[in-house]
Structures are given as C-alpha cells and as structure tokens.
Amino acid sequence: MANGPAPLISFVDVSKHYGEGETRVDALRGVSFTVAAGEVVGLRGPSGSGKTTVLNIVGCILAPSSGELRLAGEPVFSEGRWRRSDLRGLRLATIGFIFQFHNLLPFLTSTDNVALVLRLAGESAGTAKRRAHELLAYLDVGHRRNAFPAQLSGGEAQRVAIARALANRPRIILADEPTAALDSQRAQVVMDLLRRVAVEQQAAIVVVTHDDKIVNRFDRVLELRDGLLI
C-alpha cells in the first residue's frame, strides 16, 4: 500500500451475499482494502471470486450486505445503507469507468463521447468540447476526434473510453478488463496511460484483470478467491 494521506478508496470489512437460507451465496466475505491516490491496483481471481462485485460496490451500483465504503474520504455506505442519495451524481463527479468493450455510445463521435460526461456535469458546450479535444490529444487519438466508435480500432476506442473516464478529472478510476480485447502491445500502451493518469492526476485506479501480460504493471495485486482476499 502506498504511504501518504487518507486513501481514496476505503473498503472495510465488506460482505455481500445473494439470496437467503439454502440458496444463499456469499460473493464477498469481510473483504477490506484501501487504495491511495496515485496507486494502480490490480484485482485478480477466477470467475465467481467476487471481482465484479467489488467493482460494482466501489462504483456505487451495488449495495453491500454489510461493511463500510468510503470514497475520497467521504462515507458512502455504512450501517447497512447508502449515506448519499444521489449516487449517480457521486459517480459523475468522483468515479471514472473503463469497460472491457469500451462501451462508447455508437451514435456519438469520439469528441462527443468525451464531452457528454462534461455536459452532464454542467460544463458549457464550448468548454466540454475543448477539454474533450485536449484529452483525446493527450491520449494520442486527437486525429480521430470526429470518428464514430465503429470507425475506430480496438486500441483507439479504448483510448477514447479512457479519455471519457478522465473527462471530469475523477479521483477514482475503475477499469473492468480494459486490456482484454487488445493485443499485447496495445495492452501495454493502455497500462502506460493508466499509470500516467494515476501519477499526474493523483487518482486511485482499480483494474479488474485476468490478463497475465499486464500483471507486473500494478503497484499491488489483490487476489480474490471465493469472496475472500488472499
């Protein structure tokens, strides 16, 4: 764990189960970890180990059964309930998501996909467009700013998706298998980018991955098995 100020993600004794009685499935069992600013943490484990559940809980789209979640120092879940009512607002302001299959909106250009997040946050059209162009240039896809997702290569689309995730300067970035659809070379480029973002923007980054070729690119790797950290 990195030394420094309060962690940006604080996941304390979190459990999550589905169903009750004989049908009860424990997805997470008292999992605790923290991620500090500037850290890139990998989250690994076999299918069904609870990786996606961790990501969903940190992303505030799934409520834990028990435990506590703090994001950027703010208590978000504790005592069995969400402490904030506008979880979408929290996500918009604090969390950036990167998906396995980029999930860009197919009817928006690269610029508009990035600018959309800024427009949702209340930025003017001009500011949003300017910032989108800056980000696309920063991620070396500035020349593809007017292209639609279907016109982009896998690597370009993933970089546009990263630009979208960075648009609001989130303190936390959650990436779900961001290199799974990429070849080895492009996977390294994406990891380089995430590392650069973590350092330059002092963001906490959690990457769920099965990809062995990038496992040495993390500050730490959390291994999950049967809902437990090992």
């Binding site: 999930n103 197919p106 959309l116």
Partner: peptide, 13 residues
C-alpha cells in the same frame, strides 16, 4: 440497453 446502462453508470440523470 447497454448504452442506457452506460449512461446510468457514468452518472446521467
């Protein structure tokens, strides 16, 4: 569906 889920995830009201 996927686009709507993405919109919700990134914080669209």
């Amino acid at each position: 569906t996927r686009e709507i889920a993405t919109l919700k995830l990134i914080g669209a009201p």
